[in-house]
């Protein structure tokens, strides 16, 4: 099988460096993220997504499907309930936005939904992520998660960051937060660019819904890396003997510290840009073999490298 790590030379370059730099800003990094870090994060995301695609391709071939669909990618995520829950919410939010967006653009899209809601074909469920999630989640654990802590923490952090921002900075910050792996800004958000980036030779057939999940996962990967960097910073700032030293000025909100939110400082002026070393440290911790299947003292019979996805 062809390796997907070598297939990059196809003329024009597609990269998501600008988007990733904006995303990092949105997640709480310095307004001008370190360029080297951005390149590193981009390569991590690309590698992770291609690995996922590779694995999903295998599953789709086993399934006998013609293209990689969201089914195969959600299958990869099946063990992480929290991420399944996040994807579940992601679909709900997208549907909600589509619904509220559909009305203003009635001229182009069918406005029939307003009246014949039940029998209109255009609003027929296009996204099937939730159905697939329900299929994999036999114990019905996803529906039992009521509170999305990751989401909540990210939002608290964003609110804290914006608290004391001037309007100009806030505007820039808002623009940065709007960045995503979808191409274009506004109505016609597609996955053209993402597909070109992941699959430059068009060798794989990826369905639109699969691309939507990949888009979610790519975004999630960046978010996880930035979250983890703040986590590491919190650790490194710890002073012996001072139980609250780790809450000083960081943007990572620890659930414990939320009760006394005094310790989360607002503002982001002083945040030093995330360095390459910090990202590497994050990766080291992620891929650190733990005890268990890929642990230090486990005799690995099949010599497979441990596969782990940051976002999953």
């Amino acid at each position: 099988m062809v390796s997907y790590f070598t297939l990059d030379a196809t003329g024009e370059v597609t990269n998501f460096q600008k988007e990733i730099s904006n995303m990092m800003h949105g997640f709480g990094d310095n307004p001008n993220p370190n360029a080297a870090t951005v390149v590193l994060v981009e390569s991590i995301v690309l590698q992770q997504l291609r690995q996922m695609l590779q694995e999903a391709l295998n599953y789709s071939i086993i399934r006998g499907a013609k293209a990689i669909s969201n089914y195969d990618i959600i299958y990869l995520m099946r063990k992480n309930i929290i991420k399944l829950k996040r994807l579940h919410d992601y679909q709900l939010k997208l549907d909600q936005i589509d619904k509220s967006r559909q009305v203003p653009t009635t001229e182009t899209i069918m406005p029939g939904i307003i009246i014949d809601d039940e029998k209109d074909p255009s609003i027929k469920k296009r996204r099937t992520h939730i159905d697939i999630i329900k299929e994999f989640d036999e114990a019905d654990e996803v529906s039992q998660i009521k509170f999305d802590a990751i989401d909540y923490l990210r939002k608290v952090r964003a609110a804290k960051i914006t608290e004391s921002m001037s309007f100009e900075k806030y505007e820039a910050y808002h623009k940065a937060r709007c960045a995503s792996f979808r191409s274009g800004y506004g109505i016609g958000k597609g996955f053209m660019k993402l597909e070109k980036w992941l699959n430059p030779t068009k060798e794989l057939k990826i369905t639109l819904s699969a691309l939507e999940v990949l888009c979610f996962l790519a975004y999630e990967t960046v978010a996880e890396i930035v979250d983890a960097v703040f986590f590491i910073r919190q650790d490194s700032r710890k002073k012996n003997g001072d139980p609250f030293s780790k809450f000083e000025g960081g943007h990572f909100c620890n659930p414990v510290s939320l009760n006394n939110a005094v310790y989360i400082k607002s503002g982001y002026e002083g945040v030093p840009a995330i360095t390459v070393a910090e990202v590497r440290e994050v990766l080291r911790r992620y891929f650190n073999p733990r005890t268990g299947m890929n642990g230090l003292f486990y005799r690995n019979m099949c010599m497979d490298l441990p596969v782990r996805y940051i976002a999953i």
Binding site: S100, K155, A159, E163, R177
Partner: peptide
């Protein structure tokens, strides 16, 4: 006047949904 959507989202979580990644406005 400009509005701080993050703070609004925090306080009115049950009515508001703000995902700038998906849509720049708060619903």
């Amino acid at each position: 006047f400009p509005v701080k959507l993050e703070a609004l989202q925090q306080a009115h979580g049950q009515f508001a949904s703000y995902e700038p990644e998906l849509f720049p406005g708060l619903v």
